[in-house]
Simulated assay, not measured.
Amino acid sequence: MYGTAPTRRDVLATLAAAGAVGLLPEQGAAAAADRSIRPFTVKVPQAAIDDLRGRIAVTRWPTKELVDDRSQGVQLATLRALARYWTSEHDWRKCEARLNALPQFITKVDGVDIHFIHVRSRHENALPLIMTHGWPGSVVELLDTVAPLTDPTAHDGNPEDAFHLVLP
């Protein structure tokens, strides 16, 4: 690399690595050992899903709002539709399978367990990219981006557009 100008890829890779290291707090040797990266699999007990559905089913609903718009908050019909979706339409096991089809890990940062997905591209010169979701939200919102970003050639893209993804 000496004698030649760094490429965009070189600069971004260096900044990503430096930024990731800079986010880690300064801690002693014992804490550093605690930051081990361990494989993770989503396994929600059926009892937890049943409990959630049961609690939603026994919701005490308020009376209907007095206006036809959202000026008084979320409308009762919207809340009931959401409750119906989560109790009878959402397939948690399908979502769990989508998550478990990807390499997942867990590590501690500042004493808090952090779950993340790490998918390496098959393209040798892929850039590292950390993608985060907002609040409220979850990593599930990012799942549809994994294949096009890690393997752009399978989606009518170019190898130089590939990324190694970390999705906390």
Rank of each mutant, 00 (worst) to 15 (best):
I37C: 10
R38M: 08
P128S: 12
Q72F: 15
Q46E: 13
D34T: 02
K43C: 05
V11S: 00
H133S: 07
A30P: 01
T87K: 12
A29L: 14
A48P: 00
D68Q: 07
A47Y: 12
V166N: 00
T59A: 04
L76V: 08
T7H: 00
L142T: 11
V74F: 10
T153R: 06
A83F: 09
L66K: 14
R35Y: 03
R53F: 02
A13Q: 10
A47P: 03
A29E: 14
F116T: 14
S36L: 07
W86E: 03
G73I: 11
D113L: 13
V140P: 05
L102Q: 03
S36D: 14
A5N: 10
H164I: 02
T145I: 11
L52N: 06
T132K: 11
G19E: 07
R60Y: 03
E96T: 00
D156M: 12
L143F: 02
D51Y: 11
V112D: 01
G22H: 10
L66G: 15
W86R: 04
H133K: 03
R8P: 00
T132I: 14
L82P: 02
P152Y: 01
L167S: 09
P148I: 10
R8N: 09
A126C: 10
C95K: 03
A29T: 10
H164R: 05
L82F: 15
G3W: 03
A13M: 05
L23P: 00
I56Q: 00
R55N: 08
Y2T: 13
G137K: 10
G22T: 09
T78P: 00
P136W: 08
D156H: 11
D50V: 04
P39H: 08
A83N: 09
A162G: 04
Q27P: 01
A18I: 08
T153F: 02
Q104L: 09
G137N: 08
A32C: 07
A126H: 03
V74Q: 06
E96V: 09
R70F: 13
A47M: 04
G3R: 02
R122S: 14
D10Y: 01
P152L: 01
A20C: 14
L23T: 06
I106S: 11
R38N: 06
P103S: 11
Q75I: 15
V140L: 13
K94M: 04
P45F: 06
H133I: 01
L15Y: 01
V140K: 12
A147Y: 00
D113I: 09
K43W: 07
D69F: 06
Q46V: 12
V109W: 11
K94G: 04
A20E: 06
G73R: 07
P152S: 05
W86K: 08
E141G: 13
P148H: 03
P62Q: 04
S71R: 14
A97D: 07
A13S: 14
L142W: 02
S71G: 10
R60N: 09
D10Q: 13
I117R: 06
H155T: 15
T14G: 08
P128A: 14
R55P: 01
R98E: 09
D161I: 09
R84F: 11
T7D: 02
Y2S: 14
D156W: 11
V139S: 13
D151A: 05
L12P: 00
A16E: 08
T107L: 12
D110G: 03
S138K: 04
